[in-house]
Design a protein around this nucleic acid. Sequence first.
DNA 1: TTTGGGTTTGCCAAGCCGTC
DNA 2: GACGGCTTGGCAAACCCAAA
Length: 288
Amino acid sequence: MELLELWRRHLEKTKSERTTITYLNAINSFLRKLQLPSHKLVEVSSADLYQYADSSELSPASLLTHFSALRHFYRFLARRGYIEKEKYSEIEETIEDIKEDYGLKVIHRKPKALSKSELEKIFQKVKGSKYENVYKLFLYSGVRLSEYKNLSSDHFFLDKSGIYWLHLPAEITKRKKERIAPLIGPTKEETFRFTQELSRWLEDYDANLRVKAGSLQVYTNRLSKRLGIDFSLHSFRHTYITNLINQGFPAELVKEFAGHANVKTTIDIYYRFNQERAKALVDEFLKR
DNA sequence: TTTGGGTTTGCCAAGCCGTC
DNA sequence: GACGGCTTGGCAAACCCAAA
């Protein structure tokens, strides 16, 4: 059996469908660029790897992904004895050299929480439509799009204090980790106003809150352009988490509500972001 | 225990097409 | 022409793990 086919089967057993697709695409892109037939993959040299990096028009992040795939492929071949261990070491070393040469590092953008005026403009535009309800759900729950796809009224419950909680079972969350999060906004008043609305919407979830994920994404993208506001569905999640932080929830709790696997993610991404914001606020205060 | 870099995977953008 | 659905590849968020 062809080595590429063997690797594909291995990926299908050990990786997600998305990763399998991404890695296979990377290898195919490599073959196309170098105009190599797949059986020549075992003969690939350092010069070929350099040629790919030199001629590629991919962004640093994508090039990194492609080299991750190549490294994974050759590690697979070496472990099964299809290539010499020394050959794999040479390939691995070359990939490291290329990364160094090209300064390949993933650039992380800071999360963007939406401001009050941006939210007003967005909700003014979608007022009265189903998108208004869905956007509010994203904003008050911090739900991810992938989680929203599988949501139903069964995932919401009202607690004794009169606010809704979202209970996401492990099978529908990103990292297969059960998550419980309160549906709250920037203030108590807004939270209770939303709770009343949600109570009505949940009577007929499909009619009030169900939109196809693809349509929701495209609609949001177009709205972002129309309004001249740089936002996406994920911006609502950033805003939800930022609201929790601004309200003084401790990082361990924000981590649980956000569904992060560890608190480092929460602190690194959101608290660092908030420290800058705090500095800006202090500067503003001192100017008064 | 912390941190930096690598890996995995979800999200977004763009283009095409159909419908009104 | 405007709007919305679908597909696909690249980008970036989030997680993981080894080294210090």
